[in-house]
Amino acid sequence: MNEMRKAVVSVLGNDQRGIIAKVTRVLYEHDVNILDLSQTILSGLFSMVMMVDVSSEHCDFDSVSRELSALGEELGLQIRIQRGEIFDAMHHI
């Protein structure tokens, strides 16, 4: 088992059916494990943050990133995946 490598998936945009289903399908296909998830809707705006583990040997970070961006364009949402260290660095000493 590889050491865990955390990343953050963020989704922002107009709410519609199937967002979580479609995003998680991409993650599942790339063997990305979801560790934690937070989702809300504020005046029609869908916002979701997922903490995921991208350490699997079947997971190519760049491909996940490309597919999520493509999905975002298709759904008219902003979807991206970023390595977790950046959030940790900015907000924790």
Binding site: K6, V8, L12, S47, V49, M51, M90, H91, H92
Partner: peptide
């Protein structure tokens, strides 16, 4: 480490 408002702040 998982604080959504921190994450949104960084993204903003």
């Amino acid at each position: 480490m998982f604080n959504t408002s921190d994450i949104w702040e960084t993204l903003r």
